[in-house]
């Protein structure tokens, strides 16, 4: 991409490769120039498979006439490290994981995790994927019985003290809020709501790409160091 945004109406398309957990939040910024491809959210569990899956799509895209590629991923436990694009520039948000995107900035996520490290965040996307303690408990119980399910869920969640529901503004609020609250009650921990912000999503998809983003030039690889403040 020569220019610093995707706003220009004419010209080539920009390919967006992103995690399906943020599909709705991303699609709201379709401006006619974007083409989307969403990946299974399950890749977040296996960072070693993530890069491979994304690289495959990047390589396919090189044969087509795109202006550039936007990644809807953070560093995600090095899940994007090593990714290289031979022909097209890559735009990546300089974030560790998706929570910064949902909250709208790195700073607001940092503030939350410093004040309340024991927070488990839920967004409508994560709820739809069944990634809540209640749904996990149900699926564990189905596979291994209630007793084991209770033990597994306890091992998983015993240090958490708060569920935060992030309202990202693109889903009906009530049903999701109810589910999030039910999860906090189920675990016997506190419940809070935070208003998400579309700011970082918007900048990611439309530009301008300032210091909150990494621009990876052709033939360069994504590196862990670029995301760390050491």
């Amino acid at each position: 991409m020569r220019e610093n945004s995707t706003e220009r109406r004419s010209g080539k398309k920009v390919l967006v490769l992103a995690c399906s957990v943020m599909e709705k939040e991303i699609r709201q910024f379709q401006n006619g120039r974007l083409e989307f491809k969403f990946f299974d959210y399950g890749l977040h569990r296996t960072p070693e498979n993530m890069a491979q899956a994304i690289q495959l799509e990047i390589d396919k895209a090189s044969d087509e006439d795109y202006e550039g590629i936007i990644l809807g991923y953070g560093l995600c436990s090095n899940g994007i490290v090593g990714i290289t694009s031979k022909k097209l520039r890559l735009i990546i948000p300089r974030i560790h994981d998706c929570i910064s995107l949902f909250l709208g900035s790195v700073e607001s996520y940092q503030k939350q995790s410093k004040e309340f490290p024991g927070t488990y965040y839920l967004t409508p996307g994560w709820i739809d994927k069944g990634q809540t303690p209640v749904s996990k408990f149900k699926s564990y119980a189905q596979a291994y019985g209630e007793e084991t399910a209770r033990w597994v869920l306890h091992e998983e969640m015993k240090h958490y003290t708060r569920i935060v529901f992030i309202d990202t503004g693109v889903y009906p609020r009530e049903p999701y809020r109810a589910i999030a609250r039910e999860n906090a009650e189920f675990l016997g921990i506190s419940y809070e709501e935070l208003q998400g912000s579309p700011n970082l999503f918007k900048k990611l998809l439309h530009g301008p790409w300032g210091k909150e983003f990494l621009i990876i030039e052709r033939n360069q690889s994504v590196r862990q160091e670029s995301f760390l403040d050491l």
Binding site: G42, R45, T46, E48, Y144, T148, V152, E155, E156
Partner: peptide, 13 residues
């Protein structure tokens, strides 16, 4: 687990 064949319950067990 790394390959995605095991989930958290299997690993813990």
């Amino acid at each position: 687990f790394r390959k995605g064949e095991f989930f958290i319950p299997e690993l813990l067990m």
